[in-house]
Each structure stands twice: as C-alpha cells, then as structure tokens.
Design a protein around this nucleic acid. Structure first.
Lengths: 116, 116
DNA sequence: ACGATATTACGATGATTATCGAAACGTCAA
DNA sequence: TTGACGTTTCGATAATCATCGTAATATCGT
C-alpha cells in the first residue's frame, strides 16, 4: 500500500457521513447494503450519497456489486487491515502498540536536521 | 475517543505533508523536532508549516513544548494507539484482524433497512 | 534596551469538497 | 416496449482547505 492510497483511505474515513456509512457496512459484513438502504440509514440525498460512496470506493475501502436493480456496497476488510497495518508499522513506535510494531528507527544523529 | 476526534485525527493524517511530518516525528520519538527543522525536512514555508502543525495538534496527535526560542513538536503515541484501537474495534470485523477485535455484530435481521 | 533568531497570526488567493435538484441511465416486470 | 424503480451523472452553489508573503510576537545574547 503506497502513501497515496493510505492518504486516500484516511481521507475517506475522515468525514462524519462516510465514517457512519462505513461502520454501517462493517456491521452488515460481506452481505453489504444497497445504496438506497444506506441513504435511508444515514439520511442523505441520493446524489450526495453517491458522491461519498464513490469516494470510499476509489479509496479501496468499499466494493460494489450489482444485484438486480440495486447496487450493493460492502466493505473490503483486507483494505482496512492493510490500512491499520500501515499505521501500526509507520506511525506507532512507543508505548502499547510496540508489541506488534517493530520499534522506530532510533533517529540517527547524523542528520541534516538540527533540533534547535 | 469520540467520533469527532477520530475524524479529526484521520483528517489530519490524510494529507501528504502532514503525514510526512507525522512520520518524521515518529522517527524522532519523544525528543521531537523544532518547527524549523520540520520545515526544512518537508520543504514548506514557515507559515504553511504552522498551519499543518496546528491541525495535527488540534487533532491530539502532536504535542508542543517550548525549548528556548524553538517550539518542539513530538508525537503523542497514546493518541495514535487510541486511533488504531478505534479502527480495529469499529471498522474491522472479518479476516485477519479478527484476532484482536471482537467480531462484528451479526447484522440483526429485524432492521428498518431492507437489502434491496 | 536592542538586534537577531524562531515561530506564529493575519489577510489574500486559488483549489478542492460537500451538498442538492433535475435529468439521464440501467434493469426489471408486465 | 412501456412504465416504474434504483442509482448515477451533471450543473450550480456555498463552504472549507492549502498556500504564501508580510507583519507581529516571543526569546535570547550582548
């Protein structure tokens, strides 16, 4: 997972509507939910919902399939696992998450940056 | 950690400059880095950097302290752990992360939402 | 107290995002 | 093949974000 995708996924979840859409779909599991049902669940106009679903889909967090007239959205759990993996590997270093993460590089002294 | 804070933290990291600022500081650990050093590291105008540092700080991911003339920024590892915790608890449900997460509620049938 | 250094606050500007209604597009049932 | 349903595309609009130059603030050494 490259940085661009990480940023896109983080950005997708960093919005109240999209986060609740995502959590709604997590609850539902692989079965997913139709666009209409999601719209009802979060109270958004259809076209606004599409906007957010596309964002989530572009980021790789959601997957779409057609089922007759409805388009069913469901979460791609691998994507979330990858995202969490990225965070624990690259953005944690100390305290409690250290068990699962390799410790951060110990900040080499010979760096062009001086502390003050 | 309430939803608002989660969204703020996710949004803070969902930007190329801020993510690299954060990762730079993770490397440095609790010692942190002065604003000037960060600016040099990521190649931003001072005032632009302040903008991003404030965003990261507001979100709780960063902590600021003064050291003589310099302001030193360092990551708050607890905040990241909390964030990762939220994601694993609320946004994972299937596959590999299931070990640490309680499995998702099995999508009760008696819901006002119909699948299609 | 003064000048130099480190950083932030302010104001302006362009870019991107979120929202929605209306129209278009697939899919199905009869 | 027409009509209804579910969803997306298209425009328009308001709001927020990112960037930077310049001015203000804080700290230090002398």
């Amino acid at each position: 997972m490259d940085t661009v995708q990480v940023i896109q996924a983080l950005g997708a979840l960093a919005h109240a509507h999209r986060l609740s859409i995502y959590r709604l779909l997590v609850e539902r599991g692989p079965a997913g939910l139709s666009a209409g049902a999601i719209a009802e669940g979060v109270g958004l106009a259809p076209s606004s919902l599409t906007f957010h679903l596309q964002n989530l889909q572009r980021s790789g967090l959601l997957v779409q399939r057609r089922e007759s007239r409805s388009l069913i959205y469901s979460v791609d759990f691998d994507a979330m696992n990858t995202l969490v993996g990225y965070l624990t590997e690259n953005c944690c270093a100390g305290s409690s998450c250290a068990i699962e993460c390799k410790p951060a590089k110990p900040a080499r002294a010979g760096r062009k940056i001086k502390a003050a």
